[in-house]
Amino acid sequence: MRKLPSLQDFKDRNVAEGSSYYNIDGEAYPETGWAQFKQVVTRTFRLELFVGLWVVLREMFKFNIHTVQYPAEKLPIGPRYRAVHEMQRLWESGTERCIGCGLCEKICISDCIRMDTKIDENSRKAVTEYTINLGRCIFCGYCAEVCPELAIVHGGRYENVSEQRAHYIGFEDMLTPLDMAISGKVAEYPGFGAVTPHEDERVKVTPLAY
């Protein structure tokens, strides 16, 4: 197996035998004014531009198209991509994960999250309203990263055109539909702010007297 370069190797900018860097073969830059003039003239009259145009034209008539037919067709997005937020529910029980701690509201660097909370009938904290102004959001992911409950996460919906600059999204819009949560159709969230796969090994066990 190929030995992966170590971090040290990457930091080593000395171009030498065995290092990760090497020089590429390239034409030498013109040194004198005359040489530069010559380069401009040859490049202009060699019609290099039409070489590229010809390739496009040829491929067009061959109908062998590789581009994605957006918006009819969309590419899958990487799990760690940070697009419009989603609010998760707990599996099986379907309970909303958000506890209304307000950390996302606090950490948001563009100050676009706002929430109202109250005490509910069971003496628990309840979120009554929650909005994100997507017109301001810079999709930095801080909210998802700080959330202690893995409640707010970034989903894959990257389209958010709107007629107005201020463009709000509410709690209900982001919330996973209840039936999906209960029927187990939601996968464990792999994206930004999720726990790392080997988290269990790192957790210290607290003694419990039961």
Binding site: G100, G102, E105, K106, T117, K118, I119, R124
Partner: peptide, 12 residues
């Protein structure tokens, strides 16, 4: 305070 409880965080 029962009236205040869970309505706002100290830092807000």
């Amino acid at each position: 305070s029962s009236d205040f409880q869970y309505t706002a965080n100290a830092w807000e």
